[in-house]
């Protein structure tokens, strides 16, 4: 977890991922800046920022506000996400390329949307004259997908995660009972960044009255609620987990558990923070680093709890006790 990446191959992969996503974000920023500089003179004092399904404008905001907002949402937010996920080293794990694609596609799509809004306002005497069809959203999604796919193809596959770490079983005397309670909590930096970006977008949505910004707010709010904290319990019944809110929760009976160990994980392995379902695995991911991994019926349960070695050790001890008793 604390070892620095000094291996040249590792440095190359990290550099490629950072370069590809930064380039995409910077290119998106340049396109937005170019469009703004090129057409700022042709824009009305108030920009139409909201359009109904027929393409007619039904809301507007002052030009400077609108352009600043475009910059913050289309470039500032994706850049912030790149920084957040760089801290958690998204280039490690099986889904590293998907992540790079997402980080590059997001600014591309958002900038397409905002440039279309700027073009729609160009030459309009008043915001009511501007027209923009809903197809523009499809175009933006298309640009985001194509950019994301291109970047995902260009960047190298993610670095392999380090192998399992040895765990000493907690040996239980006959008749002895034991419980282990582990907490998985997000770092303050991640919580502040996610919470802060939600507030920023919520304020922007409130100021702009743009309906699809609320979708972004809802998405970010769910993301924040999903990463807060989890409790994992290991005892004679098996493994029990629940989120800080009480639900969702889950249980794996001891009879189904075939193994337990400590692994190094990155949010990139599970496609992000929170409760993550990936094929044959469930992850409670709040940070990168050492995590408790429990194998049951060909599936994996992974949680980034504190002191995972003790939790895994107790599970191994409980399994030993059960085998001895049987």
């Amino acid at each position: 977890m604390n070892q620095t990446t000094t291996h040249p191959a590792e440095r190359r992969v990290r550099r490629a991922h950072l370069a590809a996503t930064s380039t995409a974000t910077a290119a998106a920023a340049l396109v937005l800046l170019g469009a703004t500089l090129l057409w700022a003179g042709d824009l009305p004092d108030r920009l139409a920022t909201h359009f109904d399904l027929s393409g007619a404008s039904d809301d507007s905001m002052p030009r400077v506000w609108a352009l600043t907002l475009f910059g913050l949402v289309a470039v500032g937010l994706p850049a912030l996400l790149v920084v957040i996920f760089a801290v958690s080293e998204w280039w490690r794990g099986e889904r590293a390329r998907l992540f790079a694609g997402f980080l590059a596609g997001m600014p591309a799509g958002l900038v397409t949307l905002f440039v279309a809004v700027i073009i729609a306002n160009r030459g309009a005497a008043a915001p009511e004259d501007a027209r923009l069809g809903p197809w523009v959203v499809l175009l933006a999604v298309g640009v985001a997908l194509v950019t994301g796919a291109l970047v995902a193809l260009v960047v190298p596959p993610g670095l392999p995660r380090s192998v399992h770490e040895p765990v000493t079983p907690v040996v239980l005397a006959p008749g002895e009972r034991a419980s282990w309670f582990g907490r998985a909590t997000s770092s303050t930096v991640v919580l502040l960044a996610l919470g802060g970006s939600t507030v920023v977008v919520a304020v922007a949505a409130l100021a702009a009255g743009t309906w699809w910004l609320w979708l972004l707010v809802a998405l970010l709010a769910v993301l924040v609620a999903g990463v807060t904290s989890f409790t994992v319990t290991v005892d004679a019944r098996g493994l029990t987990w629940r989120s800080g809110l009480g639900v969702p929760r889950g249980h794996v009976p001891l009879e189904d558990i075939t193994g337990a160990c400590v692994v190094q994980v990155s949010p990139a392995d599970f496609g992000g923070f929170g409760i993550r379902r990936v094929p044959r695995a469930l992850g409670l991911i709040t940070r990168r680093g050492a995590a408790l991994q429990v194998e049951h019926a060909g599936r994996r349960f992974v949680a980034t709890v504190d002191d995972p070695a003790t939790g895994a050790g107790l599970l191994l001890g409980l399994l030993d006790t059960r085998h001895t008793a049987a």
Binding site: V170, L172, A173, G175, E176, R177, A178, S179, W180, F181, G182, T310, L314
Partner: peptide, 9 residues
């Protein structure tokens, strides 16, 4: 947090 008890103690 690990809690161990022995009811027969």
């Amino acid at each position: 947090m690990l809690i161990r008890i022995d009811p027969r103690g």
